[in-house]
């Protein structure tokens, strides 16, 4: 049995029967075979649950609704692309999911836990262990070397100094930059810098990767390398939420969410097979 359904119906289906989503198609009771090629997602009620999320910026008596009543369900292990025009509220949404920002109203639940419930400390824990963020402008600390940037995230996570070195080096190796460990961000190409940023995002082994236009500042070749890296993280079982302008990039995701004026315009499953 293989059917195509609107993703908005997934939670309803999953609530009464275990189903798997493979390349955007719902499959029967058993986990599918070709797991490497297109990782299966065991549909749960919802891994990330967004309900009536609003973020209003007050800008000199004018209220800007950057995120305006967004409700979404993102499943464990899903690769989601968020697309939309500039200023439509994509980054604001991602920052809310990352716990960098607090919503004006609405709820974000991750694995059943309300992000707002833990308060400030809860958000720090969320940023530290639950999510890894990747930005368009890399956001590396220029005064530190590649490995020190990764180590800093590990230090915040409470990893002791000896383990930090080892883990950071392993992570850089994973993104293919072990030989550049002692280079400063200024000595790295854009693509390399973004790979360091990804290594850093993985420091405390988060199960969610939030990427805000990770290829926006890169040429096609480097962009594709980064995308491949994200896909590999996806295969490893991580939930990826990626903002992008590029339709080709969005196409590798299992679901594309279009945002306009702070609202979800529509959601479309991608039918293209991702190239791992």
């Amino acid at each position: 049995m293989s059917i195509v359904l609107s993703p908005s119906l997934y939670p309803a289906i999953a609530s009464f029967h275990p189903v798997y989503l493979v390349c955007g198609r719902l499959l029967g009771d058993d986990p599918p075979e070709n797991a490497d090629f297109c990782p299966p997602i065991r549909l749960s009620m919802s891994f990330i649950e967004i309900r009536n999320l609003k973020k209003i910026y007050r800008k000199s008596a004018v209220n800007v609704s950057a995120v305006n009543d967004v409700s979404l369900d993102i499943h464990r292990g899903e690769f989601v692309a968020i697309v939309g025009k500039s200023g439509s509220g994509k980054s604001t949404l991602l920052n809310l999911l990352g716990g960098l920002d607090t919503p004006t109203s609405g709820i974000i639940r991750v694995d059943g836990t309300d992000l707002a419930a833990g308060g400030r400390e809860g958000r720090v824990r969320h940023r530290r262990h639950r999510v890894g963020m990747v930005f368009q402008t890399f956001q590396l600390i220029t005064g530190l070397t590649a490995i020190e940037n990764v180590e800093l995230a590990l230090a915040f996570g409470g990893v002791n100094r000896k383990d930090r070195k080892r883990i950071a080096l392993a992570l850089l190796e994973q993104v293919g930059l072990a030989d550049r460990a002692d280079h400063r961000p200024t000595e790295l190409s854009g693509g390399e810098a973004q790979r360091v940023a990804i290594a850093r995002a993985l420091a405390n082994n988060p199960d969610i990767i939030l990427a805000d236009e990770p290829t926006g500042n890169l040429d096609t070749q480097n962009g594709e390398a980064i995308l491949a890296l994200l896909q590999r993280l996806h295969v490893q079982g991580r939930t990826i939420i990626m903002i992008t302008h590029d339709p080709d990039m969005a196409a590798v995701a299992q679901r594309i969410i279009r945002i306009q004026d702070g609202r979800v315009l529509d959601e479309t499953p991608s039918f293209q097979n991702p190239q791992v």
């Binding site: 720090v124 530290r128 262990h129 963020m133 956001q139 995230a153 915040f156 405390n204």
Partner: peptide
């Protein structure tokens, strides 16, 4: 300032 923003984004607490 940006560096402080980064530190928060990668899990730095206010105390740290």
């Amino acid at each position: 300032t940006r560096e402080i923003g980064i530190m928060k984004a990668i899990g730095g607490s206010e105390g740290q």
